[in-house]
């Protein structure tokens, strides 16, 4: 904790601001009362209703599938793009490429959504593919906007990684493809994993772009949530939020523990190196 009072106050205010809404959501999800913000009694009622809501469950299942597939493709494309930006030096059209990679990071979603929709419509006219709008178009759109995030994560890992490791492998006789799979990939694996998780989360959470490119038969979880909260409070959403927060918290805590372990091992190794030297 920082020493200065002012900083301590600022930190606590900021964190409270970030967490109070989430904590309230969780608390109220156990509230039996329909008018969410007035407490009546503790119950799991809304969790039960959530589980019986077939429309919501099937939307959730669709969202998970879409997120899984998009994240997996986005990781491949994003890793390649990260490699290009971090390792290929100057290639033809580099400026355009890095522009196209970083623009989606900040591009308002309504613009991305509209433009992708118009693309899909035009493509269907010209090529007859993709037929209509549905899971496929959602996946294509999600790959496009999540790959930028993967690229940034992978690129910054590559930039901080000593390029002479790859050169050394090449110098010892490994061809570029082999260098990538035996040296680069294992070393950037943590970045790739976090890139995948990031892409997965972003895809799972996306409402605006999805709304543009989805069809009548494909409604994702955020779309269901949006239509139910648009009119005000919905206790089932609180229950859903609690589940999401729990999963994320468990994941992040596990990652934190794993990192702490790694750190301890590293310190032990360093001691060993000093004694051994």
């Amino acid at each position: 904790m920082p020493k200065s009072w002012f900083l301590r106050f600022g930190l606590i205010t900021g964190l409270l601001f970030l967490y109070i809404p989430i904590i309230l959501l969780i608390v109220l999800s156990f509230n039996d009362n329909r008018s969410v913000s007035v407490w009546s009694e503790f119950s799991f009622r809304w969790y039960g209703e959530l589980m019986r809501d077939d429309q919501l469950l099937s939307a959730a299942w669709l969202s998970v599938r879409v997120a899984f597939i998009s994240a997996s493709f986005a990781v491949v494309l994003g890793t390649l793009a990260g490699m290009m930006l971090a390792r290929f030096g100057a290639f033809k059209g580099r400026a355009l490429f890095s522009g196209m990679v970083s623009a989606p990071l900040v591009m308002p979603e309504v613009i991305m959504g509209l433009s992708l929709l118009l693309l899909f419509v035009s493509m269907e006219q010209v090529l007859g593919w993709p037929e209509g709008r549905g899971m496929l178009t959602i996946i294509l759109a999600h790959i496009t906007f999540t790959m930028s995030f993967v690229t940034v994560v992978v690129q910054s890992r590559l930039v901080s990684m000593d390029a002479s490791l790859e050169e050394a492998a090449m110098d010892l006789g490994a061809r570029p493809a082999k260098v990538f799979f035996v040296i680069t990939l294992p070393l950037i694996a943590p970045a790739i994993v976090s890139g995948w998780l990031l892409a997965f989360t972003l895809s799972l959470d996306d409402l605006v772009i999805t709304s543009f490119v989805s069809g009548p038969g494909s409604t994702t979880l955020p779309q269901i949530v949006f239509s139910s909260v648009r009119l005000g409070l919905s206790p089932k959403v609180n229950a859903l939020a609690t589940i999401v927060v729990t999963i994320v918290a468990i994941g992040i805590i596990c990652a934190g523990i794993y990192n702490a372990r790694q750190e301890k091992a590293r310190q032990r190794d360093e001691q060993m190196a000093q004694q051994g030297g």
Binding site: D162, S164, L165, E167, A168, M170, D171, L172, G173, A174, R175, P176
Partner: peptide, 15 residues
């Protein structure tokens, strides 16, 4: 290319 040269290198950073 480097991987076909009869040359090996010891890097400054050891790599």
């Amino acid at each position: 290319p480097p991987y076909e040269r009869p040359v090996n290198m010891m890097f400054q950073s050891y790599a």
